[in-house]
Design a protein around this nucleic acid. Structure first.
Lengths: 230, 230
DNA sequence: CTAATTTTGCGTAAAAATTACACATATAAT
DNA sequence: ATTATATGTGTAATTTTTACGCAAAATTAG
């Protein structure tokens, strides 16, 4: 196909997607960024993303770019806003449909091998390219609201986790502290956690009980309309 | 400027905005639609919207199209999602950034004069063009969630309103019924309502107290983080 | 190796929020 | 004129949330 072969009656902005990738481990919440090797914003970090193809919708594009640029396949990808400031990209008019992805860092193997991809804790983000700092703020806000309606936490934790881990997750995302006993009883009362018997005999109380997320119960709950109050 | 004078190396989708306009009166919640005079979807109804110009961002575009096509200027316009299905427009690849607008029907004068614009109650929507039925469902969901965090109701009611009106509004949007005494006390406890003295002496209790929204109190509340629980 | 500290599970009492509900009065309807 | 309806007000019962103490084993410190 020739260069410059697409002609339109009126000018059109470029359409891209960007993807804010959230991960979680004992260090807290973090995002995966890619270092830009070229101008503009050379040396700055940015979310993976790129131009939307004519045969894919926005979420498909976000997932494709995510995999191409980081090697990750995310289960959970969701659109949270579209950014269209006239001057957001110095190269030309660009509209980006922003998504966030939730990945289990415990299952991410060679993501750090990937050329210039690195995890940054949410409290220590380097200078970002374009309007990505604004996009990150909006992404965090969206995630914080989402966690009240959907158990997004389970997309971020390992398959099997403990109550303290789950509490850490909620505290990291919402930036608050909970009483551990109240947190546990509220969570258990929801009825979406399965106790996992990993064979080890629980003698003392210091080795925590292992849980896994029960998607079936969750779906039933969701059908009735559900809200996680914190 | 010549026809067909914009040429790009890769194909680009069109970018449009659409605007779901919500209004409220004693009949309940309704939306303002425009009848399509031409194919495709001739005779169907659609949200006002159109192509984004190169010198305006999405919200500016939505407001412009809204005014051009209905004569309305809306105070409150907010983006709630971008729709990018590959086949959503039979004429070609189009991505639309969808917004909703809240208007005071009480202050809308000649909007119905406008050629083919008409209000439809939310329970009686005619066949819609393109994927606008889906867009409407998402808009309603967004509005229902928003009402928990922001006093969107006050954008829909007249400047001065009564408690029963406010309750009707909440009940219409959330599709539930509240105990009128509990609703009133909860609302008043928020401290964002001013009692309006309209001079008339309130003898009986059947003529309801008039209120207005107090934006200052609301801003203070919002700063502390706020949620309206229903 | 021993002692001190920390982590975890469990359960209860106090406080706060939500819910359910009754009556009086003037307007509106019959 | 009589009846029905809409509105304001307050309180008791219930439910939910919050605060907090204790015991046991693992971990850490010495």
């Amino acid at each position: 196909m020739n260069k410059g072969s697409y002609t339109y009656e009126y000018p059109r902005p470029s359409v891209t997607t960007d993807c804010v990738i959230f991960g979680f481990d004992s260090e807290g919440l973090s995002v995966l960024l890619i270092e830009r090797g070229i101008e503009p914003f050379k040396g700055c970090w940015a979310f993976p993303g790129g131009f939307m193809q004519m045969d894919e919708d926005a979420e498909t594009c976000a997932r494709r770019e995510l995999e191409e640029e980081t090697g990750l396949k995310a289960d959970y990808v969701e659109q949270f806003g579209t950014f269209s400031d006239v001057n957001r990209d110095p190269r030309g008019r660009t509209v980006t449909i922003a998504h966030y992805a939730l990945v289990k860092k415990s299952e991410v193997k060679g993501a750090d091998d990937a050329a210039q991809a690195r995890w940054f804790p949410i409290g220590n983000i380097p200078p970002l390219a374009f309007d990505h700092d604004r996009i990150l703020r909006v992404a965090l806000k969206a995630l914080r609201e989402k966690i009240h309606f959907e158990p997004v936490g389970f997309e971020l934790l390992p398959q099997v986790f403990t109550m303290p881990q789950l509490q850490d997750l909620y505290e990291s995302i919402l930036e608050v502290k909970f009483d551990r006993r109240n947190f546990a009883s509220k969570m258990l009362k929801l009825g979406i956690l399965n106790e996992v018997d990993d064979g080890t005999v629980r003698k003392g109380t210091r080795n925590p009980i292992k849980y896994s997320f029960n998607p079936e119960s969750y779906c039933q709950m969701k059908a009735k309309g559900f809200r996680l109050e914190f």
